[in-house]
């Protein structure tokens, strides 16, 4: 039942942020097709450790596709060739025997490499800190059912809120733009009455921060949405544009 394959890996190795990186090639045999991509990398690392070499550094944590920690640009796709999954949910059955798999870190001016395949994604946190919230303090809230919210709006807000902040959108974008990430948060709050109160302030602050951090300009290619592991829709970007233009016109 258990099928195995032999593969060749071309992995980006880079000792530190300032060091020069290069691809290294490794061969792995008898990888079970039932194992996940990261489990395959675990096998590679075990092998490297047994040869007293430094293992490949890569980000990962929950390994169930929700924390957004894992990254990797695999064979030209963020999170690999499968759709609607993160790298940790990608399984080796998506690859064939003898295949060469190229693994690169996210490449974007705003996501500098830390080591090997690890990148610094704090830029996304900074965008959130600029305005990705509803300004309420803890305590003294009205009853949760005090404001009815149309199911459709709540569901749409949930779809936008499902963003895991992994950075695949900016990594996939030929312009290095973080628009889908910003749009998802702006949309979630713009769709809910609680968030509408400061919607104009929020969209200006978040977008301003995104531009300041050196992300690119969106040109609506849709690569972000096509690669998003959570299938966040491109229409959120239209909403972000709308919110931003309205906010600016009102100024």
């Amino acid at each position: 039942m258990d099928k195995t394959i032999n593969i060749k890996l071309k992995v980006w190795r880079q000792a530190g942020p300032k060091a020069k990186g290069a691809f290294e090639t490794y061969e792995l045999n008898n990888i079970s097709t039932d194992s996940s991509f990261l489990e395959m990398l675990d096998v590679l690392n075990e092998k490297l450790i047994s040869e007293h070499k430094e293992p490949v550094a890569f980000d990962h944590d929950c390994r169930e596709g929700i924390c957004g920690m894992c990254s990797l640009y695999i064979n030209g796709h963020p999170h690999g060739p499968d759709s609607g999954v993160t790298t940790c949910q990608l399984h080796m059955r998506k690859f064939h025997d003898g295949e060469t798999i190229t693994i690169e870190p996210w490449r974007s001016h705003a996501f500098p490499v830390i080591k090997d395949l690890m990148v610094d994604r704090r830029a996304y946190d900074k965008i959130m800190q600029a305005g990705g919230y509803i300004s309420v303090n803890t305590g003294g809230m009205p009853d949760a059912n005090a404001i009815p919210i149309a199911k459709k709006a709540a569901d749409e807000a949930m779809d936008a809120a499902s963003c895991i902040g992994c950075g695949a959108c900016a990594a996939a974008c030929k312009n290095g733009s973080a628009m889908l990430f910003v749009a998802a948060k702006v949309s979630q709050f713009a769709l809910l009455p609680q968030g509408k109160v400061e919607a104009a302030r929020r969209v200006k602050a978040m977008l301003g921060k995104m531009d300041e951090l050196g992300f690119g300009n969106c040109t609506n290619t849709g690569a972000c949405a096509a690669e998003c592991p959570k299938n966040v829709s491109l229409s959120n970007i239209a909403r972000l544009n709308r919110e931003f233009i309205c906010a600016k016109l009102k100024d």
């Binding site: 690169e104 490449r107 500098p112 030929k174 312009n175 290095g176 050196g214 992300f215 040109t219």
Partner: peptide, 11 residues
């Protein structure tokens, strides 16, 4: 946009 993509390009 070219700058935003970073110095190193995808292989």
């Amino acid at each position: 946009n070219y700058r935003a993509r970073g110095k190193e390009r995808y292989a």
